[in-house]
Amino acid sequence: MKLLTLNFLTCARKACKATNAAFPLHPKDAELEIVEVELSPLFVRNILPRVEWEALRTLCQDLGLPQLPATAPEPGELFTPNPSDGVEGEGIEEVGEEGEPTQTLKDLHHVLLETTIREGKLVCGSCGHEYAVKEGIANFLLPSHLV
């Protein structure tokens, strides 16, 4: 499972879902795998505002990955300025066509979409329940006494 996926997951138990402690889930005994995904610069740019940056930083730290900067990259850091445009200080929304994706964008793509947990567990910080990840698929079915 991608690290991006974890950004949209919390504990399946009703009592935990509304608590801050349940998000993000914490990987345990995680075995990582890099799965190549075709780079879509616009996808990365569009998804970035929806990523809880603090949670992603914690996650990377938990997994022993290179540390992410303290704050999420600004949209302007994701593309090189388009030479044909030349207007400075304009957001990329105003630019007809984006420039080339920067290394920052490529790194984000790698962390969010290509870095995956193949085997391991995801632990709820609120109730301590462990969800298994097997062959890259996380299983959130609860035993009946926890539903």
């Binding site: 499972m1 991608k2 991006l4 996926t5 949209f8 997951l9 919390t10 504990c11 399946a12 138990r13 009703k14 879902k17 509304a18 998000f23 995904v37 075709e38 879509s40 996808f43 979409l113 969800y131 062959e135 890259g136 698929i137 996380a138 299983n139 959130f140 079915l141 609860l142 539903v147």
Partner: peptide, 30 residues
């Protein structure tokens, strides 16, 4: 699980195993 495995092949999307009555997602988000 068998269907989720088949579904997980569609990049850049993701698939997990979950029950629709106990969804593991943050509320008021999507």
């Amino acid at each position: 699980t068998n269907l989720a495995k088949i579904a997980s092949s569609h990049q850049p999307q993701s698939a997990i195993v979950a029950d629709s009555l106990a969804l593991p997602h943050p509320l008021k988000t999507f």
